[in-house]
Design a protein around this nucleic acid. Structure first.
Length: 257
DNA sequence: AGTATTTGACCCAC
DNA sequence: GTGGGTCAAATACT
């Protein structure tokens, strides 16, 4: 019970953290959304008001890896928000008229920043889940002062492109194929683990069946956040990237869609 | 050259 | 009227 579960890119469920999203935009877990929304004009949809759109909220540390391919189409500074809001839509929107979109809102400036992701509409593109990047731990030469994690894409082909890279106001506009995370031991709040314990609880998932191939959302009390998972493996040697488990490129036919 | 991202403007919902 | 969501031209990158 470890390596198998170690690849927990689970999202935290939204609870009180959904505060800003207010009642209108949050659908309770287990709710089934009416896919195939009215295909009226994307913009001036009188019969397609924002409030009527099915949407649900997730709070996660890894908003970019949710198993789908997104294309950013906007960014905006929100009045009361400290961080800008990022707008993404399904990459297959043009091809498959997939109206799925998501909205990213960074919630804090913690080391691993916490994001609130609001998804709107289910994916109708039928695209296979995007494989998660390979995560390889690269112990620093001398000290463990900055463990570097390398998110590498499984060098396949069908993985499209990892276009979900950071861009915020911090990251330089580089499109490196992998993302790096560093854990500075000096900034740890606890004795030895970076332990990112959020105030929210790992409750039920609010996501119908988004991206996550397995694990992830299973509010069974045994759900850890991504970072918790990292933490628990730090002791030994930490190795993720077991994407052989992912239902990718083995049973899915891109051409079939 | 093609494609994704950035960014300001536009338009709509509230 | 204001704030927020989307468009689209310009730009950046592969």
């Amino acid at each position: 019970m470890k390596t198998e579960q170690s690849f927990e890119f689970g999202e935290l469920s939204a609870q009180d953290a959904v505060g800003s999203a207010s009642e209108s935009s949050y659908s309770p877990p287990g709710a089934v959304f009416g896919v195939s929304p009215p295909e009226s004009s994307p913009r001036g949809g009188r019969n397609n008001r924002r409030r009527d759109r099915p949407s649900w909220v997730k709070v996660t540390y890894t908003p970019y890896f949710d198993g789908h391919l997104w294309r950013k189409y906007g960014q905006k500074k929100i009045k009361d928000a400290e961080y800008p809001r990022l707008y993404f839509r399904c990459s297959y929107r043009g091809d498959r008229q997939c109206l799925a979109s998501k909205l990213l809102q960074q919630k804090n400036g913690d080391d691993p920043p916490l994001y609130e992701v609001t998804y709107t509409y289910e994916h109708t593109c039928g695209a296979p889940p995007v494989p998660f990047p390979d995560i390889v731990a690269e112990p620093p030469p001398a000290s463990r002062e900055g463990l570097v994690l390398r998110f590498d894409s499984p060098g396949g082909h069908g993985d499209a492109q990892m276009q979900q890279q950071q861009q915020g106001q911090y990251q330089p506009t580089s499109r490196s194929p992998f993302m790096m995370l560093s854990f500075g031991s000096s900034s740890q709040a606890h004795d030895q683990q970076p332990a990112f314990h959020s105030d929210m609880e790992a409750g039920s998932s609010s996501l119908p069946n988004e991206g996550m191939p397995a694990a992830a959302a299973n509010g069974d009390g045994g759900m850890f956040s991504t970072w918790d998972s990292f933490t628990y493996d730090f002791d030994s040697h930490m190795h993720f990237g077991d994407h052989t488990h992912l239902p990718y490129n083995s049973n899915y036919d891109y051409d079939d869609y």
